[in-house]
């Protein structure tokens, strides 16, 4: 799939598809800088999310992207930077 920007809405959709949503957490709130763990997503949920992003956007995320991106903002930035590299390489 040829997409060049990855947004918070994309991330929320993929999180919910792959791992569901914690009942006590409002994903529509201000979550950009919340820790994934506070949002109810442990490492396996992030692994699943990363896999879904990779296959949907046709990119490969470095192993440490998922372990080091603790917040939605960090993960979105990492994905967009990867998308940018893929686009400029093409």
């Amino acid at each position: 799939m040829d997409k060049h920007e990855f947004t918070l809405d994309d991330l929320k959709r993929i999180l919910i598809e792959g791992a569901g949503a914690e009942e006590s957490v409002d994903l529509d709130g201000d979550i950009l800088d919340e820790d994934f763990e506070h949002l109810g997503y442990e490492s396996l949920a992030l692994l699943e999310t990363g896999g879904r992003i990779e296959r949907e956007y046709g990119i490969v995320l470095d192993d440490d992207v998922l372990t080091e991106s603790n917040t939605p903002r960090a993960l979105i930035d990492a994905v967009n930077s990867q998308l940018g590299e893929t686009a400029s390489a093409a």
């Binding site: 598809e17 792959g18 791992a19 569901g20 949503a21 914690e22 009942e23 109810g40 396996l44 699943e48």
Partner: peptide
Amino acid sequence: LPSRLLPQ
């Protein structure tokens, strides 16, 4: 069950 548990 909560949605968090269904995919897993």
